[in-house]
Amino acid sequence: MLRVEHLTKIYPNGTTALRDVSFEVNDGEFLAVIGLSGSGKSTLLRCINRLIEPTSGRIIWNDLDVTAAPASELRNIRRQIGMIFQQFNLVKRSSVLTNVLAGRLGYNNPSQSLLNYFSPADQKLALENLEQLGLADKAHVRADSLSGGQQQRVGIARALMQDPKLVLADEPVASLDPVLAHSILKYLEQMNKERKITVLCSLHFLDLVHRYATRAIALKEGQLVFQGLPKEIDDAQFKAIYGQEAERVTII
C-alpha cells in the first residue's frame, strides 16, 4: 500500500507544483493520474521514488517512510518501484539487451556491474521479458534503431527486470499513436492483472482512463481535485478538472 500524506513541492524558482496532496493506493490497483499539462502529474510521480525531493509531506510505502530513507535504503526502495517514461529514456547507443539489463542494477554487486557482468540468471530473465513483449529478435540491436512503440516496450521490459511491486508510468503513451497507445497500455494492464503489480499511470485521454484504470485521481494546479472511480467523472467533474472551455475528445 502506498500512502501520500500532505505532499507539497515548491521548485527552487518558486513554482508550487504540488500543494498538500494526500491519497492512498491499495495493492493491485491501476490508478490513473489526470490533469492538464502543468498540473503537477510528473512532479507527483517523481516525488514518489524521490527522483525529485518533496518539499514537505510524507510518502509511506508498505510501512517504509520513503521521504526519510537514507541513500542506501532509498536505492533498495527504488529497485522495487519500476518507472516508465514518456520519452522512453533508453540509452540510445546501447543494445536493447543492455538497456533491459540495466533494470537489474539495483540488485547487483556494483563492482561486477561496472565490468558489464550480469549473471546468467539475469540474462535469461531479460530475454524472457523481451520475449513476452514480442521483442525477442531485437535483443542485440541498438536501442535507437527501434520504433517508438518498440522502444516503450523495452522501457517496460526494463521496469519488469526490477521485479517491481509498483510501477510509475509518466504519460507512457503520449508520444505514440493511438493504436500503439492501446497496445502499450494493454501490457501495463496485463502486468497489473497477472503479476499483481500496482500501477500509477498519468494519462491525457479520458477514454483511456475509462478503459484501463480501476480508479483515478485528478490534479489541478498542484491540488487534488478529484478522487474516485473513472465512471464518476461526469461533465461537471470534467469541467472542474479541465476548465470550462474544455471539450471531451475521443480517440479510437
Binding site: R78, M83, F85, N89, R104
Partner: peptide
C-alpha cells in the same frame, strides 16, 4: 532521460 531512468532502478 537515461540518467533519470537508471537512477530510478535503484542503481548507485
Amino acid at each position: 532521460g537515461p540518467i533519470e531512468a537508471v537512477t530510478a532502478t535503484g542503481a548507485n
